[in-house]
């Protein structure tokens, strides 16, 4: 046990937690924006799978991570348009359409991967800051700083994007007209409408942003792991949706939830590697992130009310 509580191991665990948390964070931030506008999306996992494959395949074909992330983003955007049309304009039931998106993404990404790629082949992972082309040199000395380097500067660019999005989303939701509109149409679309806010357009763009972030999450996942295979996400998208509730629709608490989940997972893997948790209890250890997340919420739960119009389609009189 004592060997775990050394600075270097703790930092490595934290770095591992960050890697695990980034896809959750990106996807959950996107879902937060969508839900704030009143639209639940259970299809995050499906969007992530499609983007994860798209990004991976792009890197195989072109070797460019930038293009890969771009393609992942575009796939997210496209699925956002689909989902927005289906739920906002066609008023489809949100729970079931999300599951439709999930099933489509699960099946189609698998089909494409079998037909276009075949056997799993690893690709180059997203580079850390110091290994970035052109600007990498700037970060090299930073990454070499003992402890701090690994803690703060050893990650890939998408990690910083994900965490930078937390204050950006908070700012957007609270300080920009668009953000305030999102909250307004999520709380009381009728009132917002009477004030001249287009409910449909606001929700449309909120969903677009949300799905684009899910797309980024998928691309980050496959490029960070350097591989794609059937059902790569393993339900990650559903956990991301759950984390929105953990974070009570606030970006910083969503981040806290993603980090908690990542940290518990990273810690249990560290403890298993050090035989602090014996192999006979490996499955019990695998439950801990889920259990602790529930427990944490039971202990912390405030009576936070969600967006009042969540899952309700809007029709103007």
């Amino acid at each position: 046990m004592s060997e775990f509580f050394t600075l270097s191991v703790l930092i490595a665990t934290f770095a591992s937690a960050v890697r695990l948390a980034v896809p959750y964070l990106l996807a959950a931030l996107g879902e937060t924006i969508g839900q704030r506008s009143g639209v639940l999306n259970l299809g995050v996992d499906g969007v992530m799978l499609l983007s994860a494959f798209g990004a991976y395949y792009t890197v195989i074909e072109t070797g460019s991570h930038l293009l890969g992330v771009g393609v992942g983003l575009l796939i997210g955007l496209f699925m956002g348009v689909v989902y927005a049309v289906v739920t906002v304009h066609l008023h489809a039931k949100q729970g079931i359409s999300g599951i439709g998106i999930f099933l489509f993404g699960l099946g189609f990404s698998d089909l494409l991967s079998q037909e276009l790629v075949g056997a799993i082949q690893p690709i180059k992972k997203l580079p850390s800051l110091a290994k970035l082309p052109f600007v990498g040199g700037i970060f090299e000395p930073l990454e070499d700083i003992k402890y701090i380097g690994e803690l703060l500067f050893s990650h890939n660019l998408m990690t910083y994007v994900a965490f930078a999005l937390v204050p950006i989303v908070t700012w957007m939701m609270n300080r920009t007209t668009f953000g305030l509109n999102i909250k307004a149409v999520g709380e009381n679309p009728q009132a917002a409408d009477s004030l001249g806010v287009s409910v449909e357009r606001t929700r449309f763009f909120a969903i677009l942003i949300g799905n684009t972030l899910a797309g980024l999450a998928g691309a980050t996942l496959s490029l960070q792991l350097g591989v794609f295979q059937q059902n790569l996400t393993n339900g990650l998208g559903f956990i991301a949706v759950a984390l929105v509730y953990f974070g009570a629709w606030r970006a910083k608490w969503v981040m806290a939830g993603a980090m908690l989940y990542g940290l518990v997972t990273a810690t249990r893997l560290q403890w298993q590697a050090r035989d602090i948790i014996p192999n006979s209890a490996s499955d019990l250890a695998a439950m801990t992130p889920a259990l602790i997340t529930i427990l944490a919420l039971v202990l912390l739960a405030k009576r936070v009310r969600g967006p009042a119009a969540l899952t309700k389609p809007f029709t103007r009189h």
Binding site: L103, F104, F108
Partner: peptide, 12 residues
């Protein structure tokens, strides 16, 4: 996998 994808499309 095709059937799974089709399932999703039908639902949508």
């Amino acid at each position: 996998a095709l059937a799974v994808a089709l399932n999703g499309l039908i639902v949508l």
